[in-house]
Amino acid sequence: MNRRNFALALGLGVAAFVAPRVALAEDHVAEAISHTKEAINHGKQGHADVLVTHAESALTHAEAAQKGAYNLHVEQGASHLKAAIAEGKKANAQGATAHASEALTHLEAAKAKAKK
């Protein structure tokens, strides 16, 4: 096998390995966004306990997305989700909603970056 064929085969192999992980990460970001929106909706209604449930699900998806493909916005979103969970567990729906809203901003930025 000459060098060109070897390089082509190697490149295709790497692409075949990486592409599914990137696509899976995008799916997790979309799920994290969906759960974060639900958390915000419940937080606005004063349902801190339900906000925590959705924020925890969003965090699970954000962390899974990070394993697939690192993104600074996802990391920052996850950080705000953790803060939202902490505030929600204190029954501070307003503070938790503020953090969840900030998380949503970062997660949506991550999704927009992935589409480029």
Score class of each variant (00 low, 15 high):
residue 3 R to N: 06
residue 3 R to M: 09
residue 8 L to Y: 10
residue 9 A to P: 02
residue 12 L to N: 08
residue 13 G to N: 12
residue 15 A to R: 05
residue 16 A to I: 03
residue 20 P to Y: 09
residue 23 A to W: 03
residue 24 L to T: 12
residue 27 D to Q: 13
residue 27 D to S: 12
residue 29 V to M: 09
residue 30 A to L: 06
residue 31 E to L: 11
residue 33 I to W: 03
residue 38 E to I: 05
residue 38 E to D: 10
residue 39 A to E: 02
residue 44 K to I: 07
residue 45 Q to C: 00
residue 45 Q to P: 04
residue 47 H to R: 11
residue 49 D to G: 10
residue 50 V to E: 01
residue 53 T to H: 09
residue 54 H to K: 11
residue 56 E to W: 07
residue 56 E to P: 06
residue 60 T to S: 15
residue 61 H to Y: 06
residue 63 E to H: 12
residue 65 A to C: 10
residue 65 A to N: 08
residue 67 K to E: 13
residue 71 N to L: 12
residue 72 L to Q: 15
residue 73 H to S: 14
residue 74 V to M: 14
residue 75 E to I: 07
residue 75 E to S: 14
residue 76 Q to S: 14
residue 76 Q to T: 12
residue 77 G to V: 04
residue 79 S to M: 10
residue 79 S to A: 15
residue 81 L to A: 04
residue 82 K to N: 12
residue 84 A to D: 10
residue 84 A to C: 08
residue 86 A to R: 09
residue 88 G to I: 10
residue 88 G to C: 11
residue 89 K to G: 08
residue 94 Q to W: 02
residue 94 Q to S: 15
residue 96 A to Q: 07
residue 97 T to R: 09
residue 99 H to T: 03
residue 101 S to Y: 09
residue 102 E to I: 06
residue 106 H to S: 00
residue 109 A to V: 07
residue 109 A to C: 05
residue 110 A to G: 01
residue 114 A to M: 06
